[in-house]
Design a protein around this nucleic acid. Structure first.
Lengths: 180, 180
DNA sequence: CCTCGCATGTAACACGTTACATGATTCA
DNA sequence: TGAATCATGTAACGTGTTACATGCGAGG
């Protein structure tokens, strides 16, 4: 019951459960939500979600209820007042670190030993990857109910625009290399 | 001598050693280079660099030479033809995966439970962090020798522009929230 | 009947960071 | 003489992915 240090993934879980009009969610449900939203800037696997759900439950921040679908076992979780407080405390922290590991850009960075045509190909590879990522984002549909959240929509727009920046930059860089 | 699977950090090392007019470099030298260049999109710590240098040496891709500075022990490394081939093969791969873990954006994503003012604060936090990152990039100086590489300079420009996109997006998002 | 999606979990592995230990040189 | 930087390395820790195991339910 005394607070174990929570991982970022725990805060992702609390985030999805903290929503005003959120229904109780299973680990599986949370993973589906991650896949269509946060995974583009913050991934979480089953190997993290299930153990964290257990820890959160032991810490009294969420409550699990047996909620079978027919004969199929299923546990859904609801956030507690304690969990809501922890989530809010985390939310208010100004800390905004970003970590990146961008293999495509790494190849572009080291492309000076390649020929002009090969350099351009590296930029096209990067462009293609980001275009594909952007299409994925564009395919995500925002439900237009009255009670839909603003911030996730805003962040989706952020992602689409960010990829557009990279696409445009690639085009400019290719033009520059062609000009020699 | 038979090829062990190389980590991405090994390719970072090979990349810095593969440069046409690169001088032999110590592990320490490579770390300094990482700190002023790739770390913004691909970090590498001593805990990775030294062991990888050893593996690369065992694989015959780099050669270490005893190269003391006064009485201070120092080993500098040079790339071999074999290492150059491995580096080129890696470079040519189209694979361009990008991984991100953006805590600031995660907070913005889940900020719907906060008040209007607090939401704006989250966006200001994100903006401040990226502005600071951008300043760091702007402080990096490009040597204007004749034999300076084009690609690193291009990637630096990429980073500065990318941060500018985020800064501008934050400003737009804040304006939108103020308008309600 | 068979495949796909729902549902839960874990063990092994891979990756990366941090902190620490050690010691020389340079410069104020 | 003390601090900063050069220089090398590793052990412990924390985090995250992958692959696997298990089994029910729904629909073709």
């Amino acid at each position: 019951m005394n607070p174990p240090k929570l991982s970022n993934v725990a805060y992702v879980i609390l985030g999805f459960l903290a929503d005003e009009h959120a229904t109780p969610k299973s680990g599986y449900d949370i993973k589906q939500l991650v896949e269509i939203s946060t995974r583009f800037f913050f991934a979480a696997s089953y190997g993290q979600i299930y153990p964290e759900l257990k820890k959160l439950s032991e810490a009294g921040m969420v409550v699990g209820t047996d909620d079978p679908t027919g004969g199929r076992a299923r546990t859904t979780y609801t956030i507690t007042a304690h969990g809501r407080a922890a989530h809010r405390e985390w939310l208010l922290q100004p800390h905004a670190r970003v970590e990146m590991r961008d293999e495509g850009l790494l190849r572009v960075f080291f492309a000076d030993t390649l020929s002009k045509e090969e350099k351009i190909q590296k930029l096209l590879d990067l462009r293609a990857e980001r275009l594909a990522n952007q299409q994925e984002l564009k395919a995500i549909e925002i439900p237009d109910e009255a009670e839909h959240d603003l911030m996730p929509e805003l962040v989706l727009d952020y992602g689409i625009g960010l990829h557009q920046y990279v696409i445009d930059w690639c085009d400019r860089a290719i033009a520059m290399i062609k000009d020699n």
